[in-house]
Design a protein around this nucleic acid. Sequence first.
DNA 1: CCGTTTATATCTTATATAAGACATAAGATT
DNA 2: AATCTTATGTCTTATATAAGATATAAACGG
Lengths: 241, 241
Amino acid sequence: MNATLGFRPLYAQVKDLLVQRLASGVWKPGEALPSEFSLAAELKVSQGTVRKALDELAAQNLVVRQQGKGTFVARHTPQRALFHFFHLVGDDGARALPSHRVLALRNARATKAQAERLKLAAGTPVIALKRIRLLGGRPAIFERIVLPGSLFPGLVERVVDKLPNEVYRFYEEKYGVTVARAVERLKAVAATPEEAKALGLRAGAPLLEIDRTAYGLDGRPVELRLSRCDTARHHYLSEIT
Amino acid sequence: MNATLGFRPLYAQVKDLLVQRLASGVWKPGEALPSEFSLAAELKVSQGTVRKALDELAAQNLVVRQQGKGTFVARHTPQRALFHFFHLVGDDGARALPSHRVLALRNARATKAQAERLKLAAGTPVIALKRIRLLGGRPAIFERIVLPGSLFPGLVERVVDKLPNEVYRFYEEKYGVTVARAVERLKAVAATPEEAKALGLRAGAPLLEIDRTAYGLDGRPVELRLSRCDTARHHYLSEIT
DNA sequence: CCGTTTATATCTTATATAAGACATAAGATT
DNA sequence: AATCTTATGTCTTATATAAGATATAAACGG
């Protein structure tokens, strides 16, 4: 009967609505959502339908569920950063978040390529960060980050040079920008003289380049990140299931 | 009441049983499983419980479900190989499975490191394959594969040198070995003279090394694979959700 | 009387079951 | 041969019960 192309099952509609609310900040990271029953009552569907929607959100790591306590908006905890968004692991299997040293943080304007990837007009204000990340005290990653200026107003002036190490948590707490998903493109490249010097390598040494585009809850790109990694003592871990 | 530590919910027990049957080859790749109702009747649980187990198996890509048709054991189709187990993508976004040229295929004995990763005793018979893979007609990957001899009896003698390109489908169809999961460790390395020559590069050129361990349905390692990739025109795609 | 412990009520999500809707394919009917 | 019917799958939704978490109040010991 429903020949409408736009038809979606009830639970999917509920899920869409919840994602929309998450994206618009109705519930903030760490907060509890209303219970299954109250959501069901509000949306005039059964509790089981709400549950199926919530289960899918939990599978996508947008919410965290805990029996007896409630359903909570997922936060960028160190744990999550480590296991979900940071794939560089020591060759002995040890995982640790790197510390960092900021080289530059300034306002700039999007290049054509950057604008295209961030879905902005060329020349739009952006924020550019250049930093070195250290693993086990050793410089291991040379990293360049580009953010849309509109999403992070006054960031450069605000942080001066005390930018925290875990920037995703910073985005979330200070600007309400939640990184929900990312795509990484990996290549092997030769270190430039600048990178080689910063990482204590010879120019031309092989580096692992990770070119990441991160997306927010609403699906729009919120960060570009180019990481050039010394993989002498570490590797990028990818699990295929 | 169930203070037994080993307690698992009913649907999880059903799932375990089904995985066990899949691993033991009760249902072969491509075949249909019994319907939800008949499984429920056999196992003395409700259809919904069977469904939850099957849904999780589908989420793990072990089975494929199709409304109105049935539930089928997942197969290593070219599509699956391409989107699931082959992460090298053209810089323009084009995906294509490489062709290959076999350099060597022979019986050998496991080194200590290989034996450890394959959970074998050192010196156990293994099969070693060396090949070049071509993307868009160009040599792009230099690859070494090691297999436990016990799982692939007579492979070297059998295939002579007509080994098919998609080896996972070959493992599955000829030896009943299904690759269900894999772990990849990526590094940037410098090309050895042998690799450089084979790939048409200068020695020392940066290559992306993919060190894969593949696991079967029963969770035991079934393949080691070291791929050294020229990423001048391609990249490794990793999606973080 | 005060502080600690122990029930208990009530909230939450997790699990199990069932019924109707929808999709597909094959056989019967025209 | 084309259409309709029916059998048999999974999908969707709903409901009931179990189990975990927590706050409150009663019971208890000092």
